[in-house]
């Protein structure tokens, strides 16, 4: 398998200032209301990109869309698929919430979601802002710590 023509989000650790704009922007654009406050407080959503901080080191972490995704191998319901473009898709409707992907992801980029009434149960991860065209986290980053670029 040669180099894929896949664009994904790369964090630049030296520039990340752990401001969490990526997190809030992500939550907002994946909400029904498109409002950050409502997204967190009414819809109970969580960010797909998470900022990891340890001392002076910080970076935003999201799905790496691996060439050989462990999550795909471990998915029991067929919710996780690798597209022709190389993107790793997660169909939240098909997901049964077994959390296998959450456990096997070496980056901690797949997260479990259980709604307040426990009716909805599925994992979720970065979808590169599929229908939006351009990842919201990259657009929101104030210090150029995220870039959207072809796979290196």
């Amino acid at each position: 398998m040669g180099k894929r023509k896949l664009m994904k989000v790369y964090p630049i650790e030296e520039n990340c200032i752990s401001c969490r704009y990526c997190e809030v922007a992500c939550t907002m654009v994946h909400s029904a209301s498109k409002d950050p406050v409502k997204a967190y407080k009414l819809e109970g959503l969580l960010p797909r990109a998470t900022v990891e901080v340890k001392g002076a080191v910080s970076l935003s972490l999201m799905c790496r869309h691996c060439k050989h995704p462990f999550c795909f191998d471990s998915c029991i319901s067929g919710a996780i698929q690798v597209g022709e473009d190389g993107k790793v898709y997660l169909d939240e409707e098909r997901c049964v919430g077994c959390w296998n992907c959450v456990l096997v992801c070496p980056f901690g980029a797949a997260h479990p979601f259980i709604s307040d009434n426990e009716k909805k149960r599925h994992s979720f991860k970065c979808d590169l802002c599929g229908d939006r065209g351009f990842p919201a986290c990259v657009e929101a980053c104030p210090n150029r710590a995220l870039v959207y670029d072809f796979e290196r």
């Binding site: 752990s18 969490r20 704009y21 997190e23 939550t27 950050p36 406050v37 967190y40 407080k41 901080v53």
Partner: peptide, 13 residues
């Protein structure tokens, strides 16, 4: 407090 989504950006900054 209504607008605060507990992202903790301010805590870090």
């Amino acid at each position: 407090d209504y607008k605060c989504v507990r992202c903790k950006s301010c805590v870090d900054q």
